[in-house]
Design a protein around this nucleic acid. Sequence first.
DNA 1: GCGGATCAC
DNA 2: TATGGTGATCCGC
Length: 624
Amino acid sequence: MTNEPPAEAKYEREAKIISEHDTLKYSLLGPSLTKSGQDNVDQSKVAEIIYNASKGSKYFNNEEARDKNLTQKIERILTKKAQLERLDLASDRRKADDYIAELELTRDLSQVVVHIDCDAFYAAVEELDRPELREVPFSVGVGVLTTCNYHARKFGCRSGMAGFVAKKLCPQLIQLPLNFDKYTAKAQEVREIIVEYDPRFESASIDEAYLNITEYCETNDIGPEEAVQQLRREVEEKTKITISAGIAANAKLSKICSNMNKPNGQFRLPSDRNSVIAFMRDLPTRKVNGIGRVFERELDAVGVKTCGDIYAYRQYLSKLFGEKAFVFLMQCYLGLGRTKIQPAEEYERKSVGTESTFGEMGDPGELRNKLRATAEELEKDMLRTQFKGRTLCLKVKLHTYEVLTRQVIPPKSIHLADDLYKYSVPMLSKLEQEFPGMRLRLMGLRCTHLVSMKKPDTMAFFGFRKRPDASTERESSPSDTSKRKIDDLSSDQEQWEEWPDELLFEDAERQEREDEFNELESLSQEVDKRRHHGKEIVPNPTPRKETEEEWWDCPICMRPQAASEKEFNEHIDLCLSRQTIRDAVQENSEQEPTPVAKKFRLGNEKGRDRIGKADPKQRRLCFG
DNA sequence: GCGGATCAC
DNA sequence: TATGGTGATCCGC
C-alpha cells in the first residue's frame, strides 16, 4: 500500500485515544492497586478484564469523563510548567533550598516508631471462624469488595472492586457479608497486646496502629527489630491474627515500611539520615500516604516518579501544585514525619453525616421520602454523637454518577430529623429545577460547624461563673484565674474524651486538634490579660439583671446575650469560629494584631502527615 | 464561604 | 444487571 499519507494529526489523534484509554484503564484498576498481594499479577491482563467488564456502563462513562478532565488538567499543568521554564526561577529555587534547610533542622532520629497493620484483617477474622476458607479465594463484602484474602488477590481481586468484576477475574470467588462487630472485637484483642509495648499507642484505624517503642526497648534492653518480632509473635499466638510492621524514625516512614514485607513480615529503616534519604530517593511517590492516583499522575507528568525526583523540580512545585503540596512534597523528599505518637483522645469531630446508595429514583415524592429517611438516620447519628450542626449539607449522586453538593446555614443549629428535613428540602427542590427530570442513585446529609450538646461549661473556659459566684470571680487574682482555667480546660478535655464509640483517628487531625487546643488556650489567656489590664475586652462579665431577664456579655463579640446558659454556650460556640475570633481580637486592638491574631491568620503551618484527606474514624464500612 | 475534587480506610 | 460509606482537606472562584 502506497497511498499512505493520512495527516500526522490523525496519528496524533489516534495515539491520544490509545493513551487516554491507557490512563482510564489504569484508573479503573482502582485505588488499592499498590496494596500487597498484587506483585505477581499481570496487571495489564487484569486491566483488560476490568475494562471489558465495565465498558459501556454508566459508571464507566463517568470514569471516562473524569479521566478526560484529569488529562486536561495535566495539560494545563504542563503548559504552566513550560511557561515557568522560560522564567528565571533562581529565587524560587533559593526559597525551596532555604525551606529544605529549615526542615532539616527539625529532623528527629531519636525515636523508634512502629506502624502495625493486620493482614487482610476482615478476611483473616472470617478465616478463624471458617478455616476451610483458607484454601480458597474469597472476599468480604458483597456488591463491592471490602477486602479479600491473598488467594483472591492472586487473581487481581482488590478492595473497592465491584463484586461482579471480581467474579470475572475469579469465577470461583466466594463472597461473604460483613460482620463488623466481629472485627471490632478482634481488633480489641490485638490492642490489648500492643498496649503493653506502648501504653500511649495510637489507633489509626480498626486494623492499624502506631507505637513509639523507644522506651520499651530501653527498659527491656531489647533492639527494635527483636521487640517487634516479639510483638508480632505474641499477637499471632494470642489472637491468631498475623500482622505486618514497619520500624522507622517517624510515623510517615514506618507506615511506608509496614507495606514492604507484607503479609506477616516486618521491615526496618535504619534511623540515620543517609539511609532515610536513600530510601526516599527510589521510593515511588504513590507509596506515600496522601499521594493517590491523581496526584501520582500529575507528578509523573512533570517528571517526578520517585520522592527523590522531587528535589530536581523544587523550584516549580509550589507554583504548579500550591503551597501546601510543596511543603508536603519537601517532607517526602527528606523523609520527615511526625514522631509524636499519642492516643486518639484529643480530637474534635468536624462533621457528622450519612449517605446511602439506592436503585435509581426520579419521582419527586419518592425523593422526598428518601430525604426524610436520610434525615431520620442523621438524627440518630447526631444524638449518638451529641452534636448539633450550624451548617447542613445535601449530597446527591445523579444516575450518571456525577456528584453534587449544596449547603445551607439554618437560623439555628439543628439536629432533629424534622429540622434536618425542613432545611434540606428546599435544596433538593432547587436541584430539581437546576436539573429537570434528575434521577438519583445516592442521597446524603451532613452537618458541619458542629456545636456540642454535652460540652461541660463554656463559661468556665473563660473563667466565668454564674451568679452569685461572679462577684468573687472578679476579685480573684490573674494567676488564680489562669490556674483554674487550666483546670477547667482539663475537665473539659475529660468530657471530650468520653465518646460513645471507640475512636480511630488519624494523626494529622490529632495534631491539628492539639494545635487548635493550644490556640484556644492562648486566646483565653489573651482575653484574660486584656480583662486584667485597662483594656477591657469584657466590660461586664457579671450577668446583668435587666427587668426579668438575665443577660450575659459575650467575652468575644461583647454583645449582650440573653437568657439561658445553654443558649449562651451556643452563642459562644458560634463566636469561637475562627473568623469571629480573628475579628474580635483585631477589633479590640488598635495596634498591630496580637500574636494570637497573627497565629490565627497564618493558620496551622506545621507539617502535616498528608495533604488532602486524613482519615478520622472508621465505622460500619471500610476497606481493609 | 461554597462546591468540586481528592484521599484514606 | 451491576461499582460503598464516613470524614477530612485543599483549591478555585
